[in-house]
Design a protein around this nucleic acid. Sequence first.
DNA 1: GTTCAAGTTCAAGTGAACTTGACTTCAAGG
DNA 2: CCTTGAAGTCAAGTTCACTTGAACTTGAAC
Lengths: 159, 159
Amino acid sequence: MGSRDLLPMGEITRRSGFAASAIRYYEAEGLIEAHRSGGGQRRFERSVLRRLAFIRAAGNVGLTIEEIRDELARLPGNRTPTKADWQRISRHWRTRLDEQIAALQRLKGGLDGCIGCGCLSLRSCAFSNPGDVHAERGSGARLLPDSLRRPHPTRRTPA
Amino acid sequence: MGSRDLLPMGEITRRSGFAASAIRYYEAEGLIEAHRSGGGQRRFERSVLRRLAFIRAAGNVGLTIEEIRDELARLPGNRTPTKADWQRISRHWRTRLDEQIAALQRLKGGLDGCIGCGCLSLRSCAFSNPGDVHAERGSGARLLPDSLRRPHPTRRTPA
DNA sequence: GTTCAAGTTCAAGTGAACTTGACTTCAAGG
DNA sequence: CCTTGAAGTCAAGTTCACTTGAACTTGAAC
């Protein structure tokens, strides 16, 4: 079937909601592919709209470009994701989401306990203990998994 | 009571878990205050440990430095947060956490519906519709509130 | 008095995910 | 042919929350 009717940039930006610069960036990063017209203009296959939808969804779930690239790389070629593809991916994302939800609920639970306690003392408040009490190497129960700990580029290993 | 026994940097870093550079940064940003010794060294009041605990907690909830500064600014001076302070703040955070949790659950719900549907077509998949269907001005149901939409510095107004 | 860990400042770097600027070129209409 | 708007490139800029490095100075202990 048709490898004809390729879509120009404008169509893609309009239908995907991404800025042209983002589209180019994704191409440069290898998340999507583009053919070229006689002059150097990009011409996209219809399937990149699906890829872009995927990218947006994955981004919303909190995957990095790197992770998204990996995930996409497992879908052979431009193939429309199969049921199996989708199930694997869904599992991945669901796990992530479950973690995030659980983390937030733990945090909220701690907060409930805190209301009106006037604490926020370093030793007793569930919100802030990572610093003082069992200080350095956070072995104890982390309230937030790294995935939610504020995507701090450099903070990674607080050293 | 003691406005004596001020704490030096090392004590603060040890007990708060923040790096010295972070402490200095927070001072520069006006989140905390410091006295100075004869030479120029910082001497902190005990209360800044509480402030730092607050900062860490707030950061974990996802507040930006800007927001934390605002919140702190409402606590008069160095006053130990009162019950009322805490209740207001807790409400604020709880709201935010509730939003975040709800958002993730909506997302997960959409994902459940998606499993095995083989969709991710731009028009039907709950995960990716913001782009295509009701395109531009996202008036429809957002799956993710801005608070979770990936703190994208520049993405703010996708323009 | 000497030593040296602990402290200081200031400028510059980091990483993620794009955007912006400063042009140049393409493609379709008149 | 000429204009116009959509598209191209490439380097550099942006935001956030810090960290890092260089180049000193302090201050508590011996």
